[in-house]
């Protein structure tokens, strides 16, 4: 007699294995990054309303809650960057007869590129906005 027992996935499946928890944490980086993007949008909106409104938005950024959002978003962005670039060489395969780049090199190039771009952007903002001090 056959009577297979069908195992149904529980809604809390991801809590029961460290690999799944790490996956969910990776996916969860989207939440603070979405709120951060909305904050950027609000800055753009205030800019369209004129100088006073934009300066008000600048002052609003000192709000402790928004600073906390920045903190969480920074952690999320860093975790995202590390996990994202770790997966790039698995997807971006450069292996043709004319050009072959090893996965390790693909990963290193992305890591170096990400550090250069992130630090470069930060320095640019420091120079352009804080430069007059």
């Amino acid at each position: 007699m056959r009577k297979p027992y069908v195992q149904r996935q529980r809604a809390d499946w991801w809590l029961r294995n460290p690999a799944y928890r790490r996956y969910m944490l990776r996916e969860a980086t989207a939440l603070p990054l979405l709120f951060y993007t909305l904050l950027l949008m609000s800055g753009l909106y205030q800019f369209t309303r004129g100088e006073a409104a934009f300066l008000g938005w600048l002052e609003l950024l000192r709000n402790p809650w928004l600073l906390a959002l920045h903190g969480v978003a920074l952690a999320a962005a860093l975790f995202h960057a590390v996990t994202w670039i770790a997966l790039v060489p698995k997807i971006l395969v450069i292996d043709t007869d004319r050009l072959r780049v090893s996965p390790t090199v693909v990963k290193r190039l992305h890591q170096v590129g990400a550090v250069v771009c992130n630090v470069g952007l930060l320095l640019l903002v420091l120079l352009l906005v804080g430069g007059g001090r």
Binding site: L33, L40, H70, W84, C117, N118, L121, L122, V125, L126
Partner: peptide, 17 residues
């Protein structure tokens, strides 16, 4: 995009005021 400029951008707007 977020991997390449996300952390830098977030840090920049955090310091902006």
């Amino acid at each position: 995009l977020l991997a390449f400029i996300g952390p830098g951008l977030v840090l920049a707007t955090a310091l902006l005021p």
